[in-house]
């Protein structure tokens, strides 16, 4: 019996993979089967996981979580009211009463937003602000300080070049370009020197600077009240560069996890079904 089910699963897997060649009757069959089965499956799942234990059982059988509850008790009302609100959603199917469904949506969306806004403000705004209001002061390890200094000058120079020099001075010929780069490097070093001077440890941390610059740039990119020109435009370009680096890393990471899913399916075909590998 197990072999029959495994064979059915394997054939459906192959039918889905046949999509890689082109659309074909096998893929169509598998697609329609999964859509149809999922519709029936979710109907049963929703009823037994949500409607029965949370509405039907408390309201009609007077039991919640296996414990008896009283008719008209607080818990009974707490099951009945959301149930009625849920039924109101179906008013959409009667155009004359469709507006009633908005009550349920209003409670649902409003309650969700009210409960969610404080944790979201704490986790996504306050904590981020606090984490970024960090010192750019670094460690006093001489090697780390020298590496930081070299990289820092390059980054400061690039930032200065992008944000100030290139946008305001322009470049006309090779000599001018070299001159602009030199000016950028000097300004970069000056920026680095000033930071190091006021830093409590005398050196500055590259990682923390990247963190702060990346966040500033990204926030600037998502500022919609002004056109992306001048300094804001430069910052937005820095922000998009950081975003793309982040997306690249995320893409690679997810591709790896998808490959592991593929390995799982191939293992199912070769091991569970055909027994070709151990």
């Amino acid at each position: 019996m197990t072999f029959i089910w495994t064979t059915i699963g394997a054939l459906l897997t192959l039918s889905i993979y046949s999509f890689l060649y082109k659309d074909n009757p096998f893929y169509k069959f598998a697609e329609h089967l999964v859509v149809g089965v999922s519709a029936g499956y979710y109907l049963v799942i929703y009823y037994f996981n949500f409607i029965h234990p949370n509405v039907f059982s408390p309201v009609f059988l007077l039991r919640m979580g296996g414990e008896p509850i009283g008719f008209g008790s607080f818990l009974w009302w707490m099951a009945l009211i959301p149930g009625l609100l849920g039924i109101l959603l179906y008013a959409r199917f009667f155009p004359k009463f469709a507006w009633v469904g908005r009550w349920a949506l209003g409670v649902y969306v409003g309650g969700y937003a009210g409960l969610g806004i404080s944790p979201v403000m704490q986790a996504r705004v306050i904590e981020q602000l606090r984490a970024n209001a960090v010192s750019v002061a670094g460690v006093e390890d001489p090697f780390a300080a020298m590496t930081n200094l070299a990289l820092g000058v390059v980054i400061f120079a690039a930032m200065t070049y992008l944000l100030i020099v290139k946008r305001n001075l322009g470049t006309k010929n090779l000599l001018a370009k070299i001159g602009v780069l030199l000016v950028s490097a000097v300004m970069g070093y000056a920026g680095w020197w000033v930071l190091s001077l006021i830093s409590s440890t005398g050196v500055v941390s590259l990682t923390n600077i990247l963190l702060v610059v990346g966040l500033l740039g990204t926030l600037s990119y998502f500022f919609f009240s002004m056109k992306h020109k001048g300094l804001l435009g430069g910052l937005a370009r820095v922000g998009i560069a950081f975003l793309m680096v982040g997306f690249g890393a995320s893409f690679g990471y997810t591709v790896m996890s998808r490959v592991s899913l593929l390995i799982g399916r191939v293992s199912f075909l070769l091991h569970d079904w055909l027994h070709l590998i151990d």
Binding site: N132, A133, I198, S199, L216
Partner: peptide
């Protein structure tokens, strides 16, 4: 949008203050 401006201001202030006195 203006919340972002406020956030940037807070962050920049925080960096400077933290740099001078952790």
């Amino acid at each position: 949008d203006w919340m972002k401006v406020l956030s940037i201001t807070i962050m920049a202030t925080g960096v400077i203050i933290y740099l001078l006195n952790p």
